[in-house]
Design a protein around this nucleic acid. Structure first.
Lengths: 142, 142
DNA sequence: TGCATATAATAAGCAGAGCTTACAATATAG
DNA sequence: CTATATTGTAAGCTCTGCTTATTATATGCA
């Protein structure tokens, strides 16, 4: 069992799966997935930007972002507005309906953080996050 | 961009995606996925156990494990042998062909570890892993 | 012994997250 | 004005994992 723990990749993959499960269980009221939540979260922080820019920020392909936005549009949490300066592009905005969902996401995030980090000191947590970011950066320059 | 870093869940999901990409790129010679590698890795450590036990060890559903073993059987890296004590069950064994693949997995793991952790001290790494395991445990008791 | 219940594996089918390739419409540089 | 680049999308694939039956076998119990 704890043999796995030699292997960082497996451990992260595993944790990721548990996070997704956790997230989906708590959020069954609002039918949003982790990836959608992440996209929505970014939209709320960069409202009005183009899809390409969003995709870039999330480091996913434009097509993947287009699909996520399709879903968020279907749920009427997000609007595509023609960019007045570029008729190819859309600007992405939140709808009023998005607010409670964002709050819900925040709530579940906090819950999860609580459940994961409750036994850790805040110093430990921030050190952990910093290390994780460095790992991630190491993988990015591929 | 760095706004995401407030959110541990998103950060881990993201890192996971990068790990999977890394893994698949380096391993294109042998057509094995991360999940298959993980299963194979476990089989090598618990050779002869039943599928249910493997599923349990990896904390995935028996059906998910059955599929993974189907794939590994197709690749002839693993064999299902009738359990002499229980005619419902199979015991899982490596084939001789598995060895080089396991070595390859080891190689790529080491490569990834190197690339992710090169800038970190070993003390930092083990502290990181310990914290990660605690997070994961926190999520497990759901 | 015989039956009810539990367990091992699997069939079938779905969902989530992401990718690639190809293409239309529009911008922009030369 | 033409060539090139960019925005968004259609179509379809992969990978990882799940749920809900079903079949075959074990096993506890009466």
């Amino acid at each position: 069992m704890s043999d796995e723990h030699d292997n960082l990749a497996f451990l992260i993959a595993d944790t990721n799966r548990l996070i997704r499960q956790f997230f989906q269980q708590r959020l069954r009221c609002s039918p949003i997935t982790l990836a959608q939540a992440r996209a929505l979260f970014y939209v709320s922080r960069f409202e009005g930007v183009k899809q390409v820019e969003l995709a870039d920020a999330l480091e996913i392909q434009p097509m993947t972002m287009a699909r996520l936005l399709d879903q968020l549009c279907d749920l009427q949490l997000v609007e595509r507005v023609q960019d007045p300066n570029d008729r190819r592009a859309y600007q992405i905005f939140l709808t009023p309906a998005a607010k409670p969902h964002l709050a819900e996401i925040e709530r579940v995030s906090a819950l999860m953080r609580e459940q994961m980090l409750s036994t850790l000191g805040s110093e430990q947590v921030s050190s952990f996050m910093r290390t994780l970011i460095r790992l991630r950066t190491g993988l990015l320059n591929d």
